[in-house]
Simulated scan of single mutants.
Amino acid sequence: MTEIVHARAVLLDMDGTLVDSTAVVERLWLAWAEPHGIDPATVLSVVHGRQGHQSMAILLPDRDHEINIAENRSMLENEANDVDGVIAIKGADALLAGLLPHPHAIVTSADVRLMNARMGEAKLTVPTLTVTAEDVTRSKPDPEGFLRGAELLGVDPADCVVFEDSGAGIQAAHAAGMRVIGVGAHAVAHSPEHHVADLTQVRVVATDEGFELHVG
């Protein structure tokens, strides 16, 4: 059954939502964690959807945060240089094309270089408006990034719909007062208002008032 979702703007996470970067994220983070003796399952339960320095702070709570900031810079550099296995989520190209005439933006925990590297490898066009790690002081699950995206688009948060896959991202969107379309199997556990297996299940339909999202 198709659900019709009304919105004035769309905010899109990147990793796990527009691009599948799971292989490289898990490869690099498990390599980082090994010398610290951190259980791999614990690492993978933390790192998705957050900025790297926040993940490090959760995994190594007693470590000086300045070390996390420095190591996160190295992690971002490594991630931007390693795009092996990064591919587009099915339907991402069509969704971005459908949104082109309408207000939309990426809101990602990646920095600009990493965003461009992964979107480029996936052969996806980066929207004109983006909110990246450089634009916020607090990482998801804090709502700052999504609220910044709504501000840039000039749209009330309640009129924005967010596409997200991670628990941290869905929590951030809800804290911003936004509705969520969860993408992928892992999103279901975090109570998005709507859910799709991939983006082939979403269509952008123009209306006299703007657009609708047909989900399902």
Score class of each variant (00 low, 15 high):
T2V: 11
E3S: 14
H6S: 02
R8Q: 13
L11Y: 12
D13W: 06
M14A: 05
M14S: 10
G16R: 06
G16Y: 03
T17Q: 00
T17L: 02
L18R: 10
V19Q: 07
V19Y: 06
D20K: 11
T22G: 01
V24P: 01
R27P: 00
W29H: 10
A31C: 09
A31L: 12
A33T: 06
P35R: 15
G37R: 09
I38E: 15
A41M: 03
V43W: 00
V43G: 00
S45A: 10
V46S: 12
V46E: 10
V46W: 06
V47G: 01
H48M: 03
H48F: 07
G49M: 06
Q51I: 00
Q54T: 07
M56P: 01
A57S: 13
A57R: 04
L59E: 04
P61K: 03
P61R: 03
R63M: 02
H65C: 00
I69E: 04
A70W: 01
A70R: 11
M75H: 05
M75T: 06
E79I: 03
N81R: 04
G85C: 06
V86A: 00
V86G: 00
A88Q: 02
G91R: 02
A94Y: 02
A97R: 10
A97Q: 13
L99G: 05
L100K: 12
P101A: 08
P101S: 14
P103K: 08
H104G: 01
H104M: 10
I106G: 02
S109R: 09
A110N: 08
V112Y: 09
M115K: 04
N116V: 14
R118H: 06
G120N: 05
K123M: 07
V126R: 15
L129A: 08
L129R: 11
L129S: 09
T130L: 01
T130C: 12
T130K: 11
T132L: 01
E134H: 08
D135E: 07
T137R: 09
R138K: 15
R138T: 11
K140T: 05
P143G: 02
E144D: 02
G149S: 15
L153A: 12
D156C: 03
A158W: 10
D159A: 11
C160P: 06
C160R: 08
V162P: 03
F163G: 09
E164G: 05
D165N: 07
D165W: 02
S166T: 14
G169I: 05
I170V: 14
I170D: 07
A173F: 05
H174D: 09
A175T: 05
M178A: 10
R179Q: 07
V180T: 15
I181W: 04
G184Q: 13
G184S: 05
A189R: 12
E193D: 14
V196E: 04
A197E: 12
D198G: 13
T200W: 08
Q201T: 15
V202A: 00
V204H: 11
E209V: 14
G210N: 11
F211M: 14
L213I: 07
H214K: 03
V215C: 03
